[in-house]
Nucleic acid binder design. Structure first.
Length: 455
RNA sequence: GGCGCGGUACCCAAGUGGCUAAGGGAGAAGUCUGCAAAACUUCCAUCCGUCGGUUCGAAUCCGACCCGUGCCUCCA
């Protein structure tokens, strides 16, 4: 398996050939959610995209270890728990469960390891101590801050230099810090807030430190791939780099992959614009199959505009795809179909190997759908399944169709229509067909008899 | 103010120096059918925001401009 794979690396701002540290093995760390609310479509995109990339690497012959964390200690969780009169771990536990419920329906496989911050406090305290020992962090009144000035590479991921950052433009500057850009790696707990004992008193981890600690624990000090949404580039990933590289003196991650936003009317989904959609709300109108298909239909780094029309298009397309693969494949091969299918599959993999170009790969997928319709070849079907091992939407929940009429009733009408056709009473036959259509039942006269399906 | 991304047919969207500008949806015609449906076949951008430039050759490179949008704040 020596297929060359290229990914656009945010760190170098170039497409680069993917080469993991260990031949044939890839370690992937994807920043997970902060579980204080329901999973939304933006999360859905991120986790579907990196799930598909994980599956692609496997199909390309890599052994993949996939780690995705839960940041279950956080200011937003504390605030929400207080609001709901519950404790943080109960709240975060609930939303972790809800996350799994919603995301699995999109065909996203569970991570190999799903570490939680609350279970890695010792490691975090150790890391903070190390940062202090090395002079990369300092304590003020029970909180510990990272000293940006000590890390000359700061800004290398997000492409900004510290002088360009306008601190205090919109966030309040803590005057006690040495530099406004310094960020907390350990936060003192206020009265009534959850906390853990530490050399600096009772406190909790700062936002970025958990990923530095947990990724190293499960994947080693240098990751092959670190991924997440584009909004994490700054400051989250920038700060992770500062922490990890200060501690280990080694490159934190070889590849940084970031997915683009989901937008609504071209604007980023955000709570302030009130244009947020949770996955479970979307499932009320659209199938998980269509959602996954939609999310993969465009290149992962571009913004993707969510709309009902776009999802309806996806449903319509899948209608055709699903219908094709409901047909029974035929074993007898001339070999010709198999060869064509292999060629198409090769194009498919090449497209994905070029910075995971799913749009181009979809063209191959549709070529295969057509080939299957033409040949019904089992070899073609096999290749479609191979593609779906990466794309992963064929077996997901399909669009729900409601039966407005009993099956018995449908059968009765079909028989009446057959009788009408036999006696060449086409007017009656067409009238029956029209009646069924109005009830959402489509009649097809095929060589193998009359078939019906829901519209 | 600093740093980015994007403008390709009715809609969505690949392509980023060179045969006829992928694919999907919608639309049109044909084959099949009593008629349909499905499927298949064919058609659907002399043209890629605008204006200049480089080049034998550009949607693809360079410059200017217009428009949209993101980050610099929590965010996938």
């Amino acid at each position: 398996m020596t297929r060359k794979i290229f990914f656009y690396n945010t760190l170098t701002k170039k497409k680069e050939e993917f080469a993991p540290l260990k031949e044939g093995e890839a370690g992937m760390y994807v920043c997970g959610i902060t579980p204080y609310d329901y999973t939304h479509l933006g999360h859905g995109r991120c986790y579907v995209v990196f799930d598909a990339i994980r599956k692609f690497l496997k199909s390309a012959g890599y052994k993949v270890k996939f780690v995705q964390n839960f940041t279950d200690i956080d200011d937003k969780i504390i605030a929400r728990a207080a609001e709901k009169n519950t404790d943080c771990l109960t709240l975060s536990g609930k939303f972790i469960d809800e996350y799994y419920t919603d995301i699995r329906r999109l065909g996203v496989d569970d991570a190999d390891v799903s570490p939680k911050v609350s279970e890695h406090i010792d490691g975090i305290i150790e890391a903070v101590s190390k940062l202090m020992e090395k002079g990369f962090a300092y304590e003020i009144d029970g909180s510990v801050y990272y000293r940006i000035g000590k890390f000359p590479d700061y800004g290398k991921l997000s492409g900004r230099n510290t002088a360009d950052i306008k601190p205090g433009a919109r966030v309040e500057v803590d005057k006690e810090k040495e530099s406004p850009l310094d960020f907390a790696v350990w936060k003192k707990s206020a009265e009534g807030e959850p906390g853990w004992d530490s050399p600096w008193g009772k406190g909790r981890p700062g936002w970025h430190i958990e990923c530095s600690v947990m990724s190293a624990k499960y994947l080693g000090q240098t990751l092959d791939i670190h991924a997440g949404g584009q909004d994490l580039v700054f400051p989250h990933h920038e700060n992770e780099i500062a922490q990890s590289e200060a501690i280990t003196g080694k490159p934190f991650s070889r590849f940084w992959l970031h997915n683009g936003f989901v937008t609504i009317n071209k604007e980023k989904m955000s709570k302030s614009l009130n244009n947020f959609f949770t996955l479970r709300d979307i499932y009320k109108k659209f199938s998980p199959q269509a959602v996954r298909f939609f999310l993969l239909s465009q290149h992962y780094r571009s913004p993707i505009d969510f709309s009902e029309d776009a999802l309806s298009d996806a449903e319509r397309t899948l209608e055709r795809v699903n219908r094709a693969f409901e047909e029974k494949p035929q074993q007898d091969e001339t070999g010709e179909a198999r060869l064509s299918a292999e060629k198409i599959y090769e194009d498919f993999m090449s497209a994905l190997a070029d910075d995971f170009n799913t749009s181009a790969a979809f063209a191959s997928f549709f070529a295969l759908v057509k080939l299957f319709n033409q040949t019904k070849s089992s070899a073609v079907l096999k290749k479609a399944e191979d593609m779906d091992a990466i794309l992963g939407f064929l077996k997901l929940e399909k669009k729900e169709k409601k039966l407005l009429i009993s099956e018995d009733e449908i059968q009765r009408m079909i028989e009446k229509r057959i009788a009408a056709k036999k006696s060449r009473d086409y007017a009656s036959a067409d009238r029956i067909r029209q009646e069924l259509l109005e009830k959402g039942v489509v009649i097809e006269d095929t060589p193998s008899g009359v078939k019906w399906r829901l519209k």
